[in-house]
Amino acid sequence: MRNTYSFKSSISPGSVFTVFAFLAVMCSLQEIMAQDAADVLRRMDDVVFAGEDQTSGIRLIMTDRSGNERVREAKVWQKGSNKRLFRFTSPAAEAGIAFLSLPDDVMYLYMPAYGRERRIATHVRNQSFAGTDFSYEDLEALRYSERFEASIAEEKDNHYILRLVPLPGTRSDYSEIIVTINREHYYPERMKSFDRGGQEYKIADYRFERKGDYWTTTEIRMTNLKRQHSTRMIFDDIEFDTGLDDDIFTVRNLTRY
């Protein structure tokens, strides 16, 4: 009882004001930082999804823990930040296999051997895409700022380091992503992803280069820490703003092979 009394008696109106003021400042700071983090993430999205549309060739080099390499080649068409068509061109056994990502989690897979497209459900999002270290989720063309809540984890001279967690209602197989963003140009340099159990899962290292008006990805090295396996995705023949028609991102076009 004494202690309680003593505690109550030790709080003066001035100290209450100080505590509230401190909390208010902290909340505002946190809000400002969150706002900053969200802004940084939006700016990163603007760089990653630069241009009205983008076309490129892709070379996927998969390396296992023994150093053995396997190569896949593909072509990618992207429009805006939510339409992407990905079509393998080699090896022969996989040539023609295509993946179409559309808004609202709508995804189709086309396998020439079956002669028809297949709607794929979100259970494949965490699965390896054609044996690579990229999952279907990694290949979706969706802005991070619309799927993740960002907070500043650390600030360095040349980098922002953000912590991303999925927004409520967002389906992701990553519980958290730590992304290192170039402070000058706002492109991602590294993303470390954690699985739903909070374990380190994948690391993606990005290489960006200036192409005309845009900074663009020229290489992503995705390392799956669990599998001890990595895939380098090397981009070439990159073209921006060629006026890709919406017809490219349709099932009609997906099945044209």
Binding site: D105, R118, R119, I120, A121, T122, H123, V124, R171
Partner: peptide, 11 residues
């Protein structure tokens, strides 16, 4: 028809 219920693909 084909679609999804939660994360399960259905047809």
């Amino acid at each position: 028809l084909s679609g999804a219920i939660k994360r399960v693909g259905v047809w």
